[in-house]
Design a protein around this nucleic acid. Structure first.
Length: 391
DNA sequence: AAATGGAACAACCGCAAGAGA
DNA sequence: TTCTCTTGCGGTTGTTCCATT
């Protein structure tokens, strides 16, 4: 696994891109596609390394990028997904169509992270910084159980992200098979909305006969995969292999309708509707405490979880956790956002009942906040990413 | 009006993983 | 199997902008 020398060559320009350079890069990619990034600068007449060109394209020039201020919804999504995924910006970006991982990362570091910290919320754990005070009672246990489920969802979400990446890779290889160097838009990036101009030009220009984006983008073969996913030991789930307390998560994924990919999206949407309406966390039953299976019909993902699933870990409050129908509730994130001193944020919602989420509230509030918080997260990850062509 | 400090954002760096020869 | 190349990713740095003094 060597590392490409890239930018350490002398004579290559670094630093901010000029409009002329942007134009050259755009024009070249429009006509030829990017092909090999390493070879691109010379062909395009740019004194840049390929890596620099790739970053400029993916983070700035790509036509399917939405720029500008993040909406409240986007902020909420970022916070919620960050609570689940941590600094996995690319995975988060797959749920924020038209936003790049770099942009999300920057926004987190410059806005959201500080905002949370200012409110006494640890931006890493998404818990109040004085959480330790609660560790001696049952509240932390509840939080841990919720986190347990969140980890479970995190693994599922990451598997989804893998499927997206796989889809992208497949689409690239498909392109190569067709002898084209035109980059295949990735479904995860919601490309069809923004690509057609470039894509059509490209395909027309190179004469490969590859259908335009609206055609091939939606006809992308869906990922059909069998993957064994080993979560790399997040704190709560971490333990040694073979340890009975270790939840082992295995995803066996194959996409329904993969050979008729053109209808995948629609099927997926319906699938999600059914899924949202019917999905609960698996009900706890005696005798199955170390094995819980879950199936998402969307990707035929069957998830088997082996580990210390307890009735407590499957419950919040008085009933089983439902993923759906929580959107209307006031989530913890909303509390965070509403408590923010950022006037640009929504002041909607009445969080007075919950006593805020500054972390200094009572333990009951903390419990309720956690419940709402994770419910909101779980609801989010079980909702189709907005505008995402994957769903 | 000039200086200064912080915020915001673009870009770079280095590591890791996968593919292919 | 090993090595090289390419790409993706996350952390960090550098530059620009803007508000405040």
């Amino acid at each position: 696994m060597g590392r490409s020398p890239c930018c350490d060559k002398v004579g290559l320009k670094k630093g901010p891109w000029t409009p002329e350079e942007d134009q050259k890069l755009l024009a070249y990619i429009e006509e030829h596609g990017h092909g090999s990034w390493r070879a691109l600068p010379a062909k395009a007449g740019l004194q840049r390394c390929g890596k620099s060109c790739r970053l400029r394209w993916t983070n700035y020039l790509r036509p399917d990028i939405k720029r500008g201020k993040f909406s409240l919804q986007e902020e909420q999504t970022i916070i919620q997904l960050h609570a689940l995924l941590g600094n996995r910006w690319s995975a988060i970006a797959t749920h924020l169509s038209k936003r790049t991982d770099n942009e999300i990362k920057n926004y987190w570091n410059t806005h959201l992270k500080k905002r949370l910290a200012k409110m006494g919320i640890d931006p890493v754990t998404h818990k109040p910084k004085n959480d330790a005070l609660l560790s001696s009672d049952g509240q932390s246990k509840s939080a841990a159980n919720l986190s347990h489920m969140a980890q479970w969802e995190s693994a599922r979400l990451e598997a989804e992200a893998r499927l997206v990446r796989e889809s992208k890779l497949r689409s690239h290889s498909y392109q190569h098979q067709l002898g084209s160097t035109v980059p295949m838009p990735a479904r995860s990036l919601d490309v069809p909305n923004g690509w057609p101009g470039v894509w059509s030009k490209s395909t027309e220009g190179n004469g490969t006969g590859v259908p335009a984006a609206t055609g091939i983008g939606s006809d992308l073969e869906s990922p059909t995969s069998t993957l064994t996913y080993s979560e790399n030991a997040p704190p709560i789930m971490a333990a040694g292999v073979g340890d009975n307390s270790v939840p082992m998560i295995e995803f066996v994924g194959s996409t329904s309708g993969s050979s008729e990919a053109g209808i995948v999206k629609e099927e997926g949407e319906q699938d999600w509707k059914r899924f949202k309406n019917s999905t609960h966390l698996p009900e706890y039953k005696e005798g199955m405490e170390n094995s819980v299976s879950f199936t998402s019909s969307l990707h035929d993902i069957s998830v088997s979880v082996e580990g210390t699933w307890t009735p407590e870990s499957l419950r919040t409050g008085g009933g089983h956790v439902h993923f759906g129908n929580i959107m209307g509730e006031e989530g913890f994130t909303n509390l965070l956002l509403n408590n923010s001193d950022d006037q640009s944020l929504s002041d909607a919602g009445d969080d007075s009942d919950n006593g805020g989420a500054s972390g200094s509230g009572g333990s009951h509030d903390y419990y309720e906040d956690n419940k709402n918080y994770w419910s909101s997260i779980l609801n989010l990850v079980n909702s189709p990413p907005s505008d995402s062509p994957l769903f």
